[in-house]
Design a protein around this nucleic acid. Structure first.
Lengths: 221, 221
DNA sequence: CCTATCATCGAACACTTGTTCGAAGTCGCT
DNA sequence: AGCGACTTCGAACAAGTGTTCGATGATAGG
């Protein structure tokens, strides 16, 4: 799809989406007005509405397009590979590669997940659930195969997503390691963390008796 | 401070802050109007402005109060403890304990970090930097002591923050493990991941030659 | 050259937003 | 009871919002 010749309409739509994503990423979805987008794309206010029905749908188009590509690429990449650890490694690589090279769109995807409403939210969310389930099943397979115990599946899954999706808050391609380094680091931390190291586990449990922090439940008062 | 008797003014301010944080957490800062807060607190629109100068300052008060408590408690908790691994374990425990028991405020702190502007942003950000530096120095100490190599310090630091701060996107106290379990899981994954497991490291490097994904740089292309 | 479809635009509408201001109410203290 | 301060409120303002609509310009096919 991306390499096929596109119609004039598609090209301009893509331009609108990319420009919008950049502004959304910078100042946030709700703080961005259609007039901001009109200014950046050098189009008129009403002219934009030829390419989307509403601001909501504009956000949807960005998120949906972005998410679909990540998932599709991921499936193409890991299909046929039988070692689950290898599959996970590729999945992380794909996710981070995509994230870093489309930081604006991915930031919008990660940060504005709840800025969208109604049926459009449901649509994006079902794609998201599909992706999460894929990862969770993968981790379960790894855990079974390597006899990992004592790690909660949901905690592990979302810890991985947390590591990967948080990068829009700090990653700076100009001063940080490149994608390969980023991917290797995160894969190593997560994977050897999941598979576990007995010596560390003992040291961890040493201080982890229970919730021994005895402060008031609320910050206030 | 928290246990001392508070003036009528302070009590009501706290009530306003807590209520606002709950609404901000639910619908987001920018989608929440002062009128929404007035309705929820059963106060008049203009009456609210007796407790804050602007909507910006309201957000600041929530974030600042919240952040200060996390950092203060953390310092009290880890001071005097010399083993850096133990210190890190306590820091994670404190962070997650606080997060789970003040989910609304912490979500506002994590998710609306850039919704605040000007000097107020600088103020919160300097606290944040202080906290990040604390963690990074701690990780460096651990890495040195345990002769960890091949892990980027910034990646490790923000991976940990990613794991911890992402929980507002998925953690449900009613169906997930409790704080102690959450804390133990995350500590284990991160710590044994950081300290590393030679067998995993080998397996990781096996497929991690470099950025061998050869797709177009942009999604849209 | 003409016409039908595509693409764009200016102007306006209806509504919500954060914030202000002066006046009124309420409370504690002597 | 009465003074002074603390606290609350209604009403209004100016600015900005997403969206619509009818009309105009461009473009390509016959």
């Amino acid at each position: 799809m991306p390499s096929e010749p596109q119609s004039k309409y598609d090209q301009k739509l893509v331009h609108v989406l990319k420009t919008s994503a950049a502004i959304f990423a910078e100042k946030g979805y709700h703080s961005t007005s259609i007039r901001d987008i009109a200014r950046a794309t050098e189009m008129s206010l009403s002219g934009l509405y030829y390419y989307f029905r509403s601001k909501d749908e504009l956000l949807f188009l960005i998120q949906d397009y972005c998410f679909s590509t990540v998932i599709d690429d991921c499936h193409k990449l890991i299909e046929g590979i039988e070692d689950p650890v290898h599959r996970l490694k590729l999945l992380i690589e794909n996710h981070l590669h995509y994230f870093v090279h489309n930081m604006n769109e991915m930031k919008v995807l990660s940060h504005e997940a709840n800025s969208i409403g109604g049926d459009l939210f449901k649509k994006v969310n079902s794609k998201k659930r599909q992706y999460v389930d894929l990862v969770m099943a993968l981790l379960e397979e790894i855990a079974r195969e390597h006899r990992v115990s004592g790690v909660d599946l949901r905690v592990a899954t979302f810890s991985l997503f947390g590591m990967m999706n948080w990068i829009y808050n700090w990653y700076d391609p100009r001063k940080d390691v490149d994608v390969a380094g980023l991917s290797n680091n995160i894969t190593r931390i997560f994977l050897s963390g999941l598979l576990g190291d007995k010596t560390v586990e003992a040291k961890t449990l040493e201080t982890g008796r229970e919730d021994h922090l005895d402060r008031s439940v609320s910050i206030w008062q």
